[in-house]
Design a protein around this nucleic acid. Structure first.
Length: 583
DNA sequence: ATTAGGG
DNA sequence: CCCTAAT
């Protein structure tokens, strides 16, 4: 999809050291009609604080997050108008000064919702329209959303580059006229503003200059050598806001992160990821000082509706679902639910993250398919772990791995094998829905009755989130195991797994090994003092025959194995009489 | 990646 | 079942 939605007119321009992103953000054609376009651009913050244009994969990653709503809808609360990353990264963000505007990150889903509130509805209806069209029909939103014109036909609007040379020396905002304030604003932020509120302008400029919101009383600044000198308010990293010929040496974050930069004319609100913005009192809230008019900019925006999410998801995964349904004929007559449906599942175990899960009926078994429908072409960047969250309170450092881990709730039934992890790598375990070889035969009419428990991820006491809960071994599984061992020998568990447990995707080779160990123990252990009823029926009683067989096999194995711990036992001696050769 | 063994 | 160490 070569749609270009990233357009930029007079909007903010990011200050990237080598202008690379600037190039990428060069306005595309529609910018003439759309005075207030919105630009999303992904950049990565290098360890030295430099910004590096995001790679396609990163872009895709973020796009997925948008679609998947893994960035919780909470963040859509723009009331806070703050997007914060995490405490550790605040510095970096601060160093980016007024050029990070994250408070409208949700604008994309919003826009596509077509039920926009100001200012977007008035801003760029065409833009919205095209977005909707693109996403609705093509079902390829990620690309459409983030695809930025890398070779925009138009030339960059030079005037939108902040130019601190214009505000050299001492300035006193109080003495400036609206017009001068506008100029200063532009010099500070690199874009025009139409706001006529002097107070607001002053605040904004002050904040821009100081990279702080503690500008309650500050109105005089001295700019020298592109640096803010000696003003009353805290001002770290002012240099970062100022265009400089030298690379940013802003912060010293170790991690590279993806960050989303967005700017829009009507959001004249630089975002400082600083608690002060939130915590500051009423008079400190920039929104409130700018609350009175039709020009009110960043207004609270609605969350994307469920419907939106669903539809989007539907489009995205329709194909995959279709495949799955095609290869998985209904095998359980007892169950109705012919129609697939989706539902929105919310997983609050991990900091209230919303996960969209599609529930579908496959062969009578409900299968949950996380709507992560885009197949990543390559692995994400190693440290791509920090994502934005826009909830006023918290900052989230969402590790992508964990984000998707939740989705990794195997169907836990015979159909489990149709949902597999592709590209499962240690660093990244994003489950992908793919149609796999389903040449599997659930033939054993045996009671593989555990087919329908919905086992999901289980949070561990401390940090981790472990997957399965417990899956009782069925008799048929045990038998298969025993058979496998007899065929391939104990220890060849990966073999057994592959050849005998192909249809039990949830049993790993380790599981097999463990189970065998247990079987062994059981088989050699005293034959159960059959004292009355087992209170714990949980333990599937293993038929003595099986146990016997296990013992046989164990002995054989021990013979063959180098353990040679075997006592005077001759090959062929089905040492049923012999007792445990514990090893 | 697989296996073995302990927890 | 999980984790880890050793292959």
């Amino acid at each position: 999809m070569e749609t270009e939605v990233g357009v930029e007119g007079n909007g903010g321009r990011m200050l990237l050291e080598d202008g690379e992103v600037e190039k990428m953000c060069s306005p595309s054609a529609p910018s003439q009609q759309i005075p207030n376009p919105i630009v999303y651009k992904l950049v990565r913050v290098e360890g030295d604080g430099r910004l590096v244009p995001a790679t396609d994969d990163e872009v895709m990653d973020v796009a997925e997050l948008f679609l998947d709503d893994n960035i919780d809808t909470d963040f859509i609360d723009t009331e806070q108008s703050l997007g914060c990353i995490s405490g550790d990264e605040i510095h970096q963000l601060e160093s980016l000064g007024g050029f990070l505007q994250a408070d409208k990150l949700d604008v994309v889903p919003e826009i596509m919702n077509a039920q926009l509130q100001e200012p977007f509805s008035e801003l760029a209806p065409d833009f919205c329209e095209s977005l909707m069209t693109e996403c609705g029909s093509a079902g390829d939103c990620p690309d459409a959303l983030v695809k930025l014109s890398e070779d925009g036909p138009s030339s960059p609007v030079a005037s939108s580059i902040p130019d601190f040379s214009k505000i050299k020396g001492e300035i006193c905002l109080d003495n400036l006229s609206i017009r001068e304030l506008h100029d200063t604003f532009k010099a500070t932020f690199g874009r025009e503003t139409s706001v006529k509120d002097k107070q607001w302008l002053k605040r904004r400029i002050a904040m821009g200059l100081t990279n702080s919101c503690d500008v309650a009383s500050a109105s005089s600044f001295t700019i020298r050598d592109n640096k803010l000198v000696d003003n009353n308010v805290s001002c770290q990293n002012v240099g970062a806001v100022i265009r400089s010929d030298q690379p940013h040496e802003a912060s010293s974050g170790e991690d590279r992160q993806l960050q989303i930069i967005q700017s829009s004319e009507h959001i004249d609100q630089p975002v400082f990821c600083d608690k002060r913005w939130r915590d500051s009192g009423t008079s400190e809230n920039p929104r409130e000082t700018y609350d009175n008019t039709e020009e009110r900019a960043a207004k609270r925006v609605r969350k994307p509706t469920k419907r939106y999410i669903e539809e989007l998801s539907e489009t995205e995964s329709k194909e995959a679902i279709g495949r799955l349904l095609a290869v998985s004929p209904s095998s359980r007559p007892g169950q109705p639910s012919p129609n697939s449906h989706t539902r929105l599942a919310r997983n609050d175990s991990l900091g209230s993250r919303t996960v969209v899960i599609r529930s579908d009926s496959l062969g009578g078994c409900e299968i949950q398919i996380p709507c992560v429908c885009r197949v990543r072409r390559s692995r994400p960047r190693k440290n791509f772990s920090t994502l934005l969250r826009f909830n006023g309170l918290d900052v989230i450092t969402t590790v992508v791995k964990k984000t998707f881990e939740v989705d990794d709730a195997p169907p836990d039934d015979e159909n489990a094998n149709i949902v597999t992890k592709a590209e499962s790598t240690p660093e990244q375990s994003q489950p992908l829905v793919i149609g796999t070889a389903v040449g599997v035969e659930p033939k054993h009419g045996d009671s593989s009755g555990d087919s329908d428990d919905n086992i999901a991820t289980v949070p561990t006491t401390k940090g981790g989130f472990r997957r399965k809960h417990h899956r009782a071994w069925t008799l048929s599984e045990v038998i298969k195991l025993v058979e496998g061992v007899s065929k391939f020998g104990a220890g060849r568990w990966s073999e057994i797994k592959r050849l005998s447990f192909a249809s039990y995707s949830y049993r790993t080779s380790v599981d097999l090994k463990d189970k065998w160990r247990n079987l062994l123990k059981a088989s050699f252990a005293p034959p159960d003092k059959g004292v009355g009823p087992r209170k714990n029926a949980a333990t599937t009683p293993i038929p003595p025959t099986i146990l016997l067989r296990v013992r046989e096999l164990a002995e054989m194995q021990s013979l063959v194995r180098p353990g040679s711990k075997v006592v005077g036992s001759v090959p062929g001696d089905n040492g049923l009489e012999r007792q445990p050769g514990y090893l």
